[in-house]
Each structure stands twice: as C-alpha cells, then as structure tokens.
Design a protein around this nucleic acid. Structure first.
Lengths: 338, 338
DNA sequence: TTGAAAGCGCTAACAA
DNA sequence: TTGTTAGCGCTTTCAA
C-alpha cells in the first residue's frame, strides 16, 4: 500500500529552497520573493505535487473542510441547497462533508461525533432544534456553526433562514381569504423539529385571527414523504365532516396528497383544495399546479457558506435579517368566495 | 483558536498505561489485555476523548474515508443511492465524502484533485466514461475505485451496476410489441456519458430487430431535467409527422415531457405515449402513471460500498454479474395493437 | 525574505 | 502483552 507521492521536501529540494520557503510559497505567497515563488511553482508542476491534507491539518490545526448535517438528502430542497452550499464553499477554498441523520434526531449527535473525529473547521446544521449533546460538542470543540433554514431572532448571528411561522401564517391567511373555514394541516413530525412546530403555530395564529380554529385532530403529523401526504388524505377522507382544504407542510406532502385524491376519486381542488410549501420544481408540473410558498432554497446555501467562513475567520458578521418567502398562487387552492 | 481536545497521551496517562497500549486499545483491542482495555476505555469516557483523524491519517496513511463523485446530487436516484452507500459504508467503519461535477465531465478531474489533497482511501465513480486524467490520478495514487451504475463486462471487477443497453432494449421491445412504429427518443447528453450512449444503442438495436429505424433527428439530446423533457416534446410537436411515442432516458425527462404535453393539449397516451426509466417514486404518482424500467437504485449503493471496502483490503472479490432491471408497465404507454 | 528546527497527535515497528 | 521510540508531511515560530 505504499504510495509514492512527492512531499514538500522533494519540492523544496528540486527548487533549491528550504522547506519553509516551499511551504510559504503555497500558503502565503505574499511573503515570498517572486523569484523563489516561481522556482517552487515550477517544481510543484514538474513533480505533480499535491499537498498532504492530513499533515497540513495536523500541523495547522485546520482542515479547510466544513461539515453539513441534514435530516435527509432525499428531499429536493435539500439537494438544491447542498449544491449551492458546496459551490460557494468551493470558491471560498473549502470542501464540504455531507452527512444525514435520516430524520432521526437522536442520531444527529452520533453523526457529529464521527465528523469530529475526522476533523472539520465548522458546522452547518439544519434548524435550531438540536440535542444538547450537539451544542455541547460544538462548544467543547470550539466549532463555529450556522443554523440554516430556520430563523431564530435570538440566535441571529448563527442563523441563515426564514421564518416558518410567517410563511405558514401567510399561506393560512390566503386560505382563509379564499373562503375556507374547514381547514386541516398535514405537518411533519413535530418532535425535534422546530420548523414543523413553527408552521403549526403560524397556521393556528392565522386561523385564530380570522375567528377560526385548528383542532388537534385536524393536525396530521406525517413523515416528509409522498406516502405521508397520501396517508393524511386517507385519514381526513374518513372523517364524518371533511375539511375543504389540506394545507401541507411541504410540496412533497402535497404531491402525495394529490395522488391519493386521484386514487380516491376526490377532485382537486373541487372536492379538496391542497396547498404546499417550498415551491420545488415539481410544484408547477403537477396537475392542478400547486399553490405553495416559495422559499429561498438556493440562497440559503450561498449565505450559509459565506456566513460560516466569516465565523471561522472571526470576522464580524453584521447580523442579517431573515430571508423572505413568497406566496405562489396556482390552481390547487379553490376560491370559495371573493 | 486553541482547542483543548485531550490527546491519546492524556488518555494513556490517566489510565496509567503507555501510549502504545492506549493506541492499541482503540485500533486493535484484541491485542490488549482485558484489564488494560477497560482502564483505557474508562479514561476515554472520562475525558470525552475523540481521536484526531488528521494525526491518525498521517501516521497510518489511511483516512477511513471514501469519496463518491456524482454527476449531480439533484436527481432522486442519486440521492437514494447516496443514502444507501453512506449507510453501508458507515456500518463498515468508513465515512463518505460526496462531491459532484454538475454534469460537466471536464470538471471531474478537478474535483478529484481537490479530494486527493484532502485524502481518501478509495473512490466511487458513476459510470465508466471518465477523462484519462481521472484514471491516471487513481493509478498514480494507487486508489482503488468502483465504477457504479454502468456495468462493463471488461471491467467487471470494478463495476457495480446494470446494463443500460439491455434496459433500453427491453423498453424499446415493449414499445414495439405494443404496436408503435414511429418512435422518438429523448436521451441525455451523450458526450462523456456512456450510459446515454448505451441507451441509444439498446433502443436502436431493438427497433432494428423489429425492422424499424431510429433516425438521428428522432434522437433528442437533452440535459437530465424536467425542462429537458419539456423541450423534447416541444421539438417533436413541431415535426410534420409526429412520433406516436417518446421514450425518455429518465423518469425526470418523462415527467417533464408529460407536463409539456398538458400545456400543448396533447393527451398522454392517446396523442403521445411516454415512457421513462429508473422508476423513481414519482413515476407512479403522475397521471397517467409512467411505464418505466425499474433499476436497482438502493442496491447499487449497498454493493458499491461492500465492493470498495473489499478492494481496499485487497480481498478477492468474486466477480459479480450485472444487476437486473425490470419493466414496470403502467398507463403512459398506449397499446396500438395486441 | 529566508532557513533551521520544533512540534502537531498518532501508528507501528521493535525490544523487552 | 506491554513500553519505547522513530517517524508520517506539514506549519510556524525564531533567528539570521
């Protein structure tokens, strides 16, 4: 298993300079005479030299790698956001280590521990609701972190996201404005997920403001899968009095719900209106097209990348306000009165 | 920026054993007396000790990390496969570093170079068609690699995948059997992607076997996006004589194509039949449900993980046959004659 | 601006 | 079965 990678010493020898100069040529070229720099660069090219990251990490105590831990990789909004996070980090000279805990919050700290062992300079997490152990480890290892997607004003320095409460409030207000009064909510699993809880609260507040209620039995907690959406529809279809609208916590839920409606011969939106959230690409492709809330998926990745690098460098990040969401009105929500 | 992580030396001191014994307790516990092992484990727990991966990597010349380079992370089949790859590697004691080159083959070697610098023990790639530089780097760094998804019998030791040719042949044969004679193909971009080329060849052979032809202008190369599928439909809709069926290279294409048909008031499958490939979850949710080819998405990740670890350990991997694909007949393909 | 040299925290001979 | 020790390849003082 021996490799024959050239070392920096080989480079230095070939270039006729010291090990120190060779190292500086690569890391802080500004401190090196142009002539020396050139000699080193020539040697690097000639030997096809590539740094040994482990040695660099050991000596400098930085890995130039950032870990991102997601609930799942299997939702297009996360996939898109990972792309933008990765691209932006790359331009800033960092690599991205991606991990997921499969929507099992209790696994997150285990994943983090493994990542810590491998060594990273910082952390990007999703949401603000994490086990104490997660925050504890970050503190203990002095790891800067960014909490993405959710926005918590009390932690704004570490947050890059939007208000799930506001997004849900907006959507529920639209639903009310369209004349609906019998409203059900298909949310995700609330435990360990403040985004789900914020959505429930936002929805409830909007209904309350209109003199309506969101009874507990009309809040249906389902995993964020197509199947989850189907199950929600099956459940409300069994109720004596069916709601006129199902507000879904994600577009994935909504698309699953629409499929189930078809199977049950429920017309959307005539028999049941359905709304989503996220505005994934699919939302405009389904029939009827989905009324949903657009969230700044790509932007979250870009900004999380910039923020985390700032935090690593100890630069003062001026606190940014939450990102904005936008209602997208299509055909899946029926107007009952104008 | 100083961290205060305890080192193995701290552990050894607290446990009252030597550095060597402490190291062995963690890496090869079998070589250590039970009593010693226990002392070390207690010290580890007490100090919350976590190995320093960089030091370990530098000294042992292995990182226990495997890199996987994908064309994109933004296709559900890859997302699913990454999940299974990651999970399986985890149980085998390896971590996964994910990267993508955004379907720009010329970027792949650059990505690989960055990964090499960081250090990995092995590589999982998608497909067999890679720049010489990629194979050259793998050779130079003695990096074991697995080529996933595609199956090339001449490289079967390194391949974990299925025959795209066969899959396409099967689907095209079904289309012919259903009585279609005017057949168009919406493939991906063929350059730098043998999977696309195999699909084209498989389709062409099946048609040829039935006395039909696949003219070049009925092969439409489009990027693997919903929009790609839409564009393909727009293109054939402009032809003087339209085909009766559009065979799509992926379900993503097919779903996009179906959406465009709706916008153009083309009935699927009456005005135009559409077939897909991959059998993503969405395929059964769209209306009409998609006739497609199921591919072993999850299995590819599991097997790639096992194979790559075998290769790292220099174990003899008995050459496995290609994985199998299955036709899934639903409603998007019309029967013109029986 | 450069060179010399002391580690970074661990593994893996080797000797005991 | 254990302890000792010489590196792994790089960064980063420090002195020149």
């Amino acid at each position: 298993m021996r490799e024959n990678r050239p070392t920096l010493e080989d480079v230095a020898r070939l270039a006729g300079v010291s090990l120190g100069s060779a190292s500086r040529s690569l890391s802080v070229p500004a401190l090196v005479k142009a002539e020396t720099l050139e000699k080193v660069q020539r040697a690097v090219k000639q030997l096809c030299y590539v740094r040994n990251g482990a040695a660099q990490a050991l000596a400098s105590r930085r890995t130039r790698t950032i870990a991102a831990i997601y609930p799942t990789l299997d939702n297009p909004i996360f996939a898109v956001s990972i792309q933008s996070l990765q691209k932006t980090l790359w331009t800033l000279g960092y690599q991205l280590l991606v991990a997921s805990y499969d929507y099992q919050p209790e696994h997150e700290s285990g994943v983090l521990r493994a990542i810590l062992e491998r060594g990273v300079d910082a952390l990007v997490l999703v949401g603000t609701d994490h086990a104490d152990a997660v925050y504890e480890l970050a503190r203990q290892y002095r790891l800067p972190y960014v909490l993405s997607w959710s926005f918590d004003p009390t932690k704004s320095k570490n947050c890059v996201g939007f208000s799930y409460y506001d997004a849900a409030y907006k959507m529920a207000s639209l639903v009310v404005e369209y004349g609906h009064t019998e409203i059900a909510l298909c949310s995700g699993i609330a435990s360990g997920n403040e985004r789900v809880r914020e959505r429930i609260m936002g929805t409830r507040s909007a209904l309350f403001a209109a003199g309506l209620k969101l009874p507990q039995e009309w809040i249906i907690e389902q995993p964020f899968t197509f199947e989850g959406g189907r199950l929600a529809v099956r459940q409300i279809a069994g109720y004596a009095n069916m709601p006129s609208v199902l507000i879904c916590g994600t577009d994935i839920h909504a698309v699953g719900a629409m499929a189930e409606c078809r199977d049950l011969s429920l017309k959307v939106p005539d028999d049941l209106s359905i709304t989503g959230s996220d505005d994934i690409e699919l939302a405009s492709l389904v029939q009827p097209a989905l009324t949903t809330v657009q969230v700044p998926t790509w932007d979250i990745g870009v900004r999380a990348a910039k923020r985390i690098v700032n935090l690593i460098n100890g630069e003062d990040t001026n606190e940014e306000p939450p990102l904005q969401t936008t209602l997208i009105v299509r055909e899946s929500l029926k107007r009952l009165r104008s």
